[in-house]
Design a protein around this nucleic acid. Structure first.
Lengths: 210, 210
DNA sequence: CTACATTTGTGAAGTTTTTCACAAACAGCG
DNA sequence: CGCTGTTTGTGAAAAACTTCACAAATGTAG
């Protein structure tokens, strides 16, 4: 039953999990209807999404909140912790490093890199900013599974390749370019300019149709 | 011909524009084939995407780079500048404020707000951090069209409502909640936790199928 | 001016995702 | 224990999106 899962389903699963986290009546149950209401989707969609991964509701009752939450964490792969390397100690890197939800969800930042000599050696929490010279070496040594690229587009492709070379399993990419890496290494792009453009498009569109 | 445009089309338009910007042979032309190669999609998709907005290619030749670039900017609503209000002067707010591509694309940050008394009055570039007490007033006075919410989830809904009340036309939301605003005000969500979850899902999935 | 080599724009076909609708399962109650 | 009121899980229908394939343009070369 678990074959090709739509990206949109994955995004909704995150939403469901978020809803359940802000739901302290942990002992109780929740219906697809209620879950849908919190997530701006439909009950049928919720059930279909979940059905991709098995059937863990009780007919007539709904879903056990505790259990569903645990199951979603498992599906999303956050029922464990991830060893993360942060590449780029600029504003965005700093913001991510400090992001509370980050650590809280098991994403452990175990190394920070930056090419700027002025930054190398700087202490960030328990971490120290390192030189890219020791990139592969450190990634391997610390068994980093996932890197966050918060560097300019010009450097991103090279660092992505080096990360893959060092055995990283996935990349969260903030640089506004399409990385060229082997398909076995998933890349998730976050492109702030694109988000702003989507917004100004939507506004312009609304105005045109008004 | 311009009716309901898929969100995925809008994202691709951004990509096309990005490709064209890194293409200095401005006088020349580019074919849908070439554009597709740079954007990880297909020629047919490129043509279909563009065809939603008219037909501005020349058969046998392709698209005039200059013209297409201008047309894309117009479609995306960035052939003008936007007056932006930044709500939340934390790490994320700072990162966005400093983001070079930001100013470069006509997003003008004209006001910054934060509830933390320690931050109010702080100078950021030419801006000074203001109190939320004067939120609506300032938004109206400066004619802010677009706000960026870089604040905790607990405060986001309230500030969104107040922004709408003050006549804002769109919201870029970094808080991990679904904002409840009138449909005429588009909201674009950026959810870093969700991106990480999508990534860990993809990695886990790859491992399961391996 | 005609034949030719391209490349767009677009209906139609194909695929994917969402919505519908209903049988099956379950708790509660008398 | 059987009836009732829910709510799931899921095929089937509908809608949305992507790919195909080809006629209509357009520049080029002879």
């Amino acid at each position: 039953m678990t074959r090709k899962i739509p990206q949109s389903t994955v995004r909704r699963l995150s939403h469901y999990l978020r809803s359940l986290e802000g739901f302290e009546g942990s002992g109780g149950t929740i219906s697809s209807e209620e879950l849908a209401a919190r997530g701006q989707t439909t009950a049928a969609q919720v059930r279909k999404d979940l059905s991709h991964f098995g059937s863990f509701g009780k007919r007539g009752l709904g879903y056990q909140v505790d259990e569903l939450r645990a199951r979603l964490r498992q599906i999303l792969g956050i029922d464990r912790s991830w060893r993360v390397g942060l590449v780029g100690a600029g504003r965005i890197g700093l913001a991510l490093f400090d992001y509370p939800a980050f650590q809280a969800r098991g994403y452990d930042c175990v190394a920070i890199f930056d090419a700027d000599p002025a930054k190398i050696g700087e202490a960030w929490g328990e971490q120290t900013v390192r030189s890219p010279d020791v990139f592969e070496e450190v990634l391997r040594e610390l068994d980093v599974e996932l890197v966050i690229l918060a560097i300019p587009a010009s450097a991103a492709q090279e660092m992505a390749e080096r990360a893959v070379e060092a055995g990283v399993k996935g990349i969260l990419n903030f640089a506004p370019i399409r990385l060229n890496v082997p398909p076995k290494v998933p890349v998730q792009d976050v492109n702030l300019v694109m988000e702003l453009e989507a917004l100004s498009f939507a506004i312009s569109q609304a105005e045109r149709n008004a």
